[in-house]
Design a protein around this nucleic acid. Structure first.
Ligand SMILES: [Mn+2]
Ligand SMILES: [Mn+2]
Ligand SMILES: [Zn+2]
Ligand SMILES: [Zn+2]
Lengths: 119, 119
DNA sequence: AATATTTCTGCAACTCAGTTGCAAAGTTTA
DNA sequence: TAAACTTTGCAACTGAGTTGCAGAAATATT
C-alpha cells in the first residue's frame, strides 16, 4: 500500500487530499490510506498543508527536507479550481516575532487564482 | 446578540473560536453565535484564521482594514497553549508567484511557542 | 393601536473529514 | 511450523460546522 500511495504522490504536481488519494485507488480502504499518509508524515516524506478547504492536503517533501523551519515554503491555493501547489522556489523569509516567541513551523497559504483559472 | 459578541471580541487579545465564544455567553445558542460571527466576517469586522486546530479562529479587524491583500498579516499559533495571535505589526511581504498566478488573500500561520510557554 | 412584514433566535438534525477499536489477514522471526 | 508482529478493512464514532424551520422579537405599514 505504501508503495502504491508513494507512487501516486510522485505523479502529482499538486498537493493531494486523503479523499482524492482514496478515489485514485479504489481497491483500498480510507483508513488504510489515512494511516499510510500519517506514517509518511511522521517519517517526513510528506508535509501537510491546511489550505482552508476542510481537507488537509499532503505533498511530498523535497529530497533535502528535514521538515524544519528552514524547509518551509509558501503554498498557493486556487479559489476557483481548489488546487493547492507548493511554491518551493523560495523559502519563507525570517519574520520578527514578539519578544520570546519562538517559531518552529508554519502553514503559509496564499489564495487567489492559478494560471489556469486566471484568464 | 451582535453587541454582546462584539464586546467579547473587543476584550480579547487572542483570536477566538466559535466554541470559546459560545462558552463565554452561556445564555445563547451556538447557531446564533455562529451566524453572528459569519455576519461580522461578511461585513469585514472580523477576519478568520485557520490555525491548524480544527476550530476556525476569529479576530477583530483593525480600523483601517478592508480585508484586502494589503491588510494581510501573519498569525502566530502556540503549539502548547493553543493561543492564536494576530501579528499586526508587519504586513506580509510581496511574494513572487508563478507566472499568471494572482494573489487575493492569504492565511499565514507561524507555529511555535509563545512567550508564556517558552520558558 | 392593530396588523402585516421582516429579522433574529433556539432547537434539532444533518454533513463530512478525520479518527479509532477491533478482529482478520498477511508478514517476519525464531 | 509456530509465535510475534504488522497491516488492513470494516464499522462506528467524534466534533466542528452548517442548515431548515417554526416561534419570538423587532420594525414597518395601515
Ligand atoms: Mn509544500
Ligand atoms: Mn489577524
Ligand atoms: Zn485554479
Ligand atoms: Zn503558549
Amino acid at each position: 500500500m505504501r508503495i502504491i500511495v508513494l507512487q501516486y504522490l510522485m505523479e502529482q504536481i499538486k498537493a493531494v487530499s486523503l479523499r482524492s488519494t482514496e478515489d485514485a485507488m479504489e481497491m483500498s480502504d480510507k483508513s488504510t490510506i489515512y494511516r499510510t499518509l500519517k506514517t509518511f508524515e511522521k517519517n517526513k516524506l510528506v508535509h501537510t498543508i491546511d489550505d482552508g478547504t476542510k481537507q488537509l492536503k499532503y505533498a511530498l517533501c523535497l529530497e533535502s527536507c528535514k521538515c524544519e523551519a528552514i524547509d518551509l515554503h509558501y503554498h498557493f491555493h486556487c479559489s476557483s479550481c481548489q488546487s493547492t501547489y507548493c511554491l518551493t522556489n523560495h523559502n519563507i523569509p525570517k519574520i520578527d516575532l514578539p519578544k520570546n516567541f519562538q517559531m518552529h513551523q508554519a502553514n503559509m497559504v496564499i489564495k487567489g487564482l492559478c494560471a489556469e483559472c486566471h484568464k
